[in-house]
Design a protein around this nucleic acid. Structure first.
Lengths: 215, 215
DNA sequence: TATCTATCTTAACACTGTTTAGATTGACCG
DNA sequence: CGGTCAATCTAAACAGTGTTAAGATAGATA
């Protein structure tokens, strides 16, 4: 189930990661990213602190700066992986269905499911002010996720590229808005399993309303 | 251009809106709310600090606590007024048009216009973790804004209340998602006047696509 | 083996929100 | 008119935060 999220290029070239080191951590980047994701999962986007991430990785508060520059740099890395995971989820969802409408529908469900399952990460991915918003890799990761929508939309609406772009913006806006509103409890409590199910059926109705079979 | 969003009442320039500064401020609540809105307008939601609001109101950092309890309490008050302003904008926009579809369309434009014009306040209104999320007045203000959509939607779709609820969720999700994505630069830069205009025409296309004349 | 450089720590700085105790004030009430 | 009292605000402190500068350590290299 856990698919490799990071690009294939992995290690800092020269050495094999040693689990137990002394002064040198060995895998500090990965440890900090993992710690950050854990904090986001436990405490949400507002709960993240750089010091806590360092604490969990077992290093001093100043250590992260050598690898990520600052907190925004670390969070940017987390967001990039988040976008990759989201793109993967969208691709997977579409691949399991046949017919453009069914694919789009499945993508919409997958998008909101991702948001509800990883609220902290999701919120952080769209918090430009806490990221290095103009990082090329971040921008590309975001575009790649959006592209997953455009692929299916192009299949669905045929028309000019301009029209496809419009339709893709419409689809993305709808599911993104729904996810955001749901996370702020605008469609009822979201903490419980039952709450989540109710929200997902509401989403189902919304998608059927906006993209009926006739489209 | 800048329309008074707060009740027409006071004109608190930074200091001493009232007679000579004494030990008592006299209108501290209003001054703090105005200061907070100014910070949100200048620095965005992430730029707000309680101390800066106190500074602008000319009081000590501890003063706000006597009126609002804590930072969340102050921001909750700001958010309540924000929702009232949003509801007013939606009502105004609808009242200027005839026909349910035109009204809904105008509301969608007004919603995004509000978000682009007051990004800091808008983001804060939907940042539950920074507010007293279960404050009854806040919840009611939020529901009142959402209700503006439901009124028009009921006019448009006729059907069962359940169907109207679905359609309202769809409309709200779409414009909210569009606004949020636009504020995170997903539809291009949003700082310039030209950027905003381009975004609004994109929104126009989206609304025409999702709510065509035939609905 | 000696040096070099990446990595990490220690310590400090300027912030933040919140709490406690005390000072000041205006208003009520005899 | 004068005294009490509650409301209002300040001062000071505390535990946090992100970031930086200077120095220690260790792994790799020559």
């Amino acid at each position: 189930m856990t698919k490799p999220i990071a690009p294939a290029r992995a290690k800092p070239s020269h050495k094999v990661p040693k689990p137990e080191a002394g002064y040198h951590h060995g895998e500090l980047q990965e440890a900090l990213i993992a710690a950050s994701e854990a904090i986001l999962a436990e405490q949400g986007a507002e709960g993240f602190t750089l010091r806590e991430a360092a604490r969990r990785a077992g290093v001093s508060p100043a250590a992260p700066s050598h690898h990520f520059g600052n907190a925004q740099g670390l969070l940017t890395e987390v967001a990039i992986r988040g976008y990759a995971a989201l793109a993967g989820a969208l691709r997977d969802a579409a691949s399991r269905k046949q017919g453009a409408r069914e694919k789009l529908h499945a993508q919409g469900l997958a998008y909101v499911e991702f948001a509800l399952k990883h609220p902290g990460r999701f919120q952080m991915m769209f918090a430009n002010k806490r990221l290095v918003a103009d990082d090329p890799r971040l921008r590309q990761a975001s575009r790649a996720a959006g592209h997953e929508f455009e692929i299916i939309i192009a299949e669905l609406v045929g028309g000019t590229p301009r029209q496809a772009k419009t339709a893709a913006a419409a689809a993305w806006s709808t599911v993104h808005g729904f996810a955001k509103l749901a996370l702020e409890d605008k469609f009822g409590p979201v903490k419980s399993e039952a709450g989540d199910r109710k929200i997902m059926t509401t989403l189902n109705h919304v998608l059927n309303y906006l993209w009926p079979a006739s489209r």
